[in-house]
Simulated scan of single mutants.
Amino acid sequence: MIAMQYNFSLPADYDMAIIDRRIRDKGPLLDNLPGLKFKAYLTARKGNPATRSRDNLYAPFYVWHEEEAQSDFICGPGFQAVTESFGRPQVNSWIAWHAGTSADVCNAKFATREVVAIEPDQSLSEFRRKESDVATAALSRADVLASVVAFEPTRWTLVRFRLLANPPSDISASSIQIYNVGHLSLPGVD
């Protein structure tokens, strides 16, 4: 599986209702998209205490079952429409070590994402085991509806991503970005 995210930082005075409308109108178009495990349509508003964001953000997060589905999307009309509206973003991709969802994932209202550097002397097999165990265990908490951990070996980073039903209350690290979930595209949505 592959985790993927791109991010648009929008001006401080940008009317985020435009993004909310876009998500409401276009979000359901990816429900049941072949090869997609889920797409979380994420936003954060500058100054909103729930997301603690310094910027207005539109930052969808995807988990793909295979690279062909990811490639089909990036080369297709949906992504073309995004680039026509906002420009071509840098698309970050990570190889998933764990990408689990709960039966209640459709109730996600918030998300957290942390990207951390993998130290050069870090044993990857041990790190993978530890991070996968933590991601798996996170799903046993009632507030965690999806848990993803993935890495990329170009810049050697790890992403930890969670979908949550309620605003996170135990976030102290400034490296963790909190988002609102505007829509969640899933397989089997009618």
Score class of each variant (00 low, 15 high):
residue 1 M to T: 10
residue 1 M to L: 10
residue 2 I to S: 02
residue 4 M to V: 10
residue 6 Y to I: 06
residue 7 N to D: 09
residue 8 F to Y: 15
residue 10 L to Y: 06
residue 12 A to N: 12
residue 12 A to Q: 14
residue 14 Y to D: 06
residue 15 D to A: 14
residue 16 M to I: 07
residue 16 M to S: 00
residue 21 R to S: 14
residue 23 I to F: 10
residue 24 R to V: 10
residue 26 K to Y: 12
residue 27 G to H: 07
residue 29 L to F: 06
residue 31 D to H: 03
residue 33 L to I: 05
residue 34 P to L: 05
residue 35 G to F: 04
residue 36 L to R: 00
residue 39 K to Y: 02
residue 41 Y to H: 13
residue 46 K to D: 09
residue 46 K to G: 09
residue 56 N to D: 05
residue 57 L to I: 09
residue 57 L to S: 02
residue 60 P to C: 03
residue 61 F to V: 09
residue 61 F to N: 00
residue 63 V to F: 02
residue 63 V to P: 02
residue 64 W to H: 00
residue 65 H to P: 04
residue 71 S to E: 13
residue 72 D to F: 07
residue 74 I to G: 08
residue 83 T to F: 07
residue 85 S to K: 14
residue 85 S to Y: 09
residue 88 R to G: 10
residue 91 V to F: 08
residue 91 V to G: 05
residue 91 V to K: 03
residue 92 N to C: 10
residue 92 N to R: 14
residue 92 N to A: 15
residue 95 I to F: 08
residue 97 W to R: 00
residue 98 H to Q: 07
residue 101 T to K: 07
residue 102 S to K: 10
residue 103 A to F: 11
residue 104 D to T: 12
residue 105 V to C: 01
residue 107 N to G: 06
residue 112 T to W: 02
residue 112 T to I: 11
residue 114 E to S: 11
residue 124 L to M: 14
residue 124 L to E: 13
residue 129 R to G: 11
residue 131 E to M: 15
residue 135 A to Y: 05
residue 137 A to K: 07
residue 138 A to E: 13
residue 141 R to L: 13
residue 143 D to F: 08
residue 143 D to M: 03
residue 143 D to E: 15
residue 149 V to R: 00
residue 152 E to T: 09
residue 155 R to I: 14
residue 160 R to P: 11
residue 165 A to P: 08
residue 175 S to Q: 13
residue 178 I to F: 00
residue 179 Y to C: 05
residue 180 N to C: 11
residue 180 N to E: 15
residue 183 H to W: 14
residue 184 L to Q: 02
residue 185 S to N: 08
residue 190 D to W: 11
